[in-house]
Design a protein around this nucleic acid. Structure first.
Lengths: 212, 212
DNA sequence: CCGCGATGTATCGGACCGATACATCGCACG
DNA sequence: CGTGCGATGTATCGGTCCGATACATCGCGG
């Protein structure tokens, strides 16, 4: 999962570890907290060993003027290689069982802008199926085993059931959207960031949820 | 976390591994899928080594009629010890940072019937605080960094934000309930609080469950 | 009689986390 | 002027938990 996320982010622009972590937190904030360095750095090393990313020299100009007196341990910028892009395409296109758990689905979804529509549909339906199964399990417990459980546990299940039903509805909407051709995004985005803007958030009239 | 969950379940009745896994799945179904055996068995061993659980002989009567022809590798039933109950009380009463993440909170909440009211309140408020922080992070991203992200990522954040707001409301309700004295349904209180006597009385008979 | 699914115990490699250590840089505050 | 402190930045270590796998028993239907 981490591998897929890193490859995806580096496809947008080269980054060093710290930055990667922050971007990841911004992109996956809805799914999970920040990634740990204890996962990040070993994974970077693994990806580099596999040839999917490489170190990019930082500050290529004016290099010799500071001759590494203290062996200058600067930031290490990574960029994705051609093989890395291939790997990303392969990972994003195939769906195993881990694609449908909370984290896996979140990562895949976060890169839907780089995923073709058929795959998007497949993943959304797989996720829906999985959530429906969880929902049925919770209904079973609430129905058949309710008297074995205390009030707090029951309340927990009810809240979980509610969340399941809500997510299924959300997925239904997304699936309907995909099928009707008009996705909530442009299917081919090549955006590389870098924009700085302090005051621009949406002007008043813009309603969020509507599907034109 | 697993340690706490196992100790809590064994407090209700002795069980073997397979059963433990199923009960755990039923009790925590809203939070996470079934626990893996790759975690369960090593943890059981660890708990046993620490003296918090012991193996209980199965089928104490009519033992000699099947003389273990094939060294009978039967089920191993575990039961909690007095030290184990103490350990449970200690774990359930203290709250670290991991108490407020999804899994940690779920496990603690699932055993609220064995937690005193002050601790319940503390945990609910800690969880609320954490979710509020996540919510603010998502609002920030949706407000300030919206133009850097594609439509799918934004939709993911919106769904996450919605879930946060919903959970905060749920927690508010529970907190209000706790403060007003009447718990969701069964104010079955008077359970383990701080560190007190070692010799705890049998749990208040709230859950009927018989083993065949 | 045989297969097959449920029950049941167990291990192994790998993914990921939390704590920790350490170094640099800009800047606010005395 | 210096000094300390929070942000930035790289890195490792031990531990928890997961997924795959192996293997053995039991009851039941074909």
């Amino acid at each position: 999962m981490l591998e897929l996320a890193i490859l995806g982010l580096l496809q947008e622009s080269p980054m060093h570890g710290y930055e990667l972590r922050k971007e990841l937190a911004a992109k996956l904030g809805a799914i999970r907290a920040a990634i740990s360095y204890g996962s990040l750095y070993p994974t970077l090393r693994r990806l580099q060993a596999a040839g999917w990313i490489t170190e990019a020299a930082e500050t290529p100009a004016t290099a010799e003027e500071v001759p590494a007196l203290t062996s200058r341990r600067g930031r290490v910028v990574y960029k994705i290689t051609a093989e890395g892009k291939e790997r990303f395409a392969q990972l994003i296109g195939q769906a195993g069982p881990e694609t449908y758990d909370d984290t896996g689905f979140g990562v895949h979804f976060a890169f839907f802008a780089r995923t073709d529509q058929a795959t998007r549909l497949r993943i959304l339906e797989g996720r829906r199926r999985k959530i429906e199964e969880r929902r049925e399990g919770l209904r079973d417990v609430l129905g058949r085993a309710a008297e074995r459980l205390d009030a707090y546990t029951l309340e927990l299940q009810r809240h979980g059931l509610d969340a399941c039903e809500r997510e299924v509805r959300w997925l239904e909407e997304l699936i309907a959207n995909e099928r009707s051709g008009r996705a909530p995004t442009v299917p081919r985005a090549g955006t590389v960031g870098g924009r700085r803007d302090t005051d621009s958030p949406p002007p008043p009239g813009e309603s969020r949820k509507e599907r034109p």
